[in-house]
């Protein structure tokens, strides 16, 4: 048995672990109940809320991640390693703890002042966006930095020697070369935001038709032992999330040979 066969065997086994989990959902599958659930007003609201909040939080995080990742990739500055490490906070702290940290912040004088004078986050849809944003920002920066690290800095340097300003060099050389990777990073963090649960439920609560995202709705169904309902929502989340990722992957692969 050679290494190629062993490694392919391991990847197929890994695939099977997830595939079995998905297939096992159908043990409780009931087509009529499934149709009834997915076309219910409450589920459609949850789906729309999840898609909208995940898209907004992804856009904001990617827009911030591009310059932040650029700074980490290209420059040396004070406390760079500390800052870089802090962006791993969402990966080392549980999402529920992140949500709790947000709640604590909004109970501090500064947080209360922001809520009283600008925008309310606690138990609102804005809170969902914030929870998703806090969860994915660090990951977005990490992913975009990895993309920028792959693009030789020399391109920009040469562009500058040709009379281009540093911003112009970034916009005409680095960004076009990185956009494919940045888009892929965006899709990954969007999928992460779509499935975000812990921080969302902690700061935004579980109010039906107000702050109930798809993951929160799944939790609510499980908590009342509605297994078929939970299974139906999980399937919707899988179809939307994995379907988007797979579609984007195929699209990029094809556009690579345009």
């Amino acid at each position: 048995m050679n290494f190629k066969r062993v490694s392919i065997g391991i990847v197929l086994t890994s695939f099977l672990i997830y595939a079995v989990l998905i297939i096992s959902l159908f043990y409780f599958f009931d087509i009529e109940r499934f149709a009834e659930i997915i076309f219910s007003r409450r589920v459609l609201f949850s789906l729309r809320l999840s898609l909208i909040t995940a898209t907004i939080s992804t856009l904001i995080s990617v827009i911030i991640a591009i310059p932040a990742a650029y700074a980490l990739s290209r420059f040396d500055f004070v406390a760079k390693d500390l800052i870089d490490t802090l962006f791993e906070l969402p990966m080392v702290v549980s999402p529920a703890a992140l949500g709790a940290m947000l709640l604590i912040f909004f109970n501090n004088p500064l947080g209360s002042w922001i809520q009283d004078n600008y925008i309310r986050f606690v138990f609102t849809a804005s809170g969902i966006v914030l929870a998703q944003f806090i969860t994915i920002l660090g990951i977005a920066i990490r992913l975009v930095k990895a993309v920028l690290d792959e693009i030789p800095e020399r391109y920009e340097k040469v562009a500058r020697s040709l009379g281009s300003s540093s911003f112009n060099s970034f916009m005409t050389i680095t960004f076009p070369l990185a956009k494919r990777g940045i888009f892929a990073s965006g899709i990954l963090v969007w999928a992460k935001a779509l499935g975000e649960f812990g921080a969302t439920i902690t700061i935004a609560g579980t109010m039906a038709m107000q702050t109930e995202t798809l993951p929160v709705a799944i939790f609510m169904r499980i908590s009342v032992a509605d297994i078929t309902g939970a299974m139906s929502l999980i399937l919707i989340l899988i179809i939307v999330g994995l379907g988007t990722l797979y579609g984007v992957r195929i699209f990029w692969r094809e556009s690579l040979y345009d």
Binding site: K157, V158, R160, S161, L162, G163, S164, S165, S166
Partner: peptide, 10 residues
């Protein structure tokens, strides 16, 4: 001077 103002090609 910044790189783009040095008047030297590279």
């Amino acid at each position: 001077l910044p790189v783009e103002k040095r008047g030297v090609s590279y």
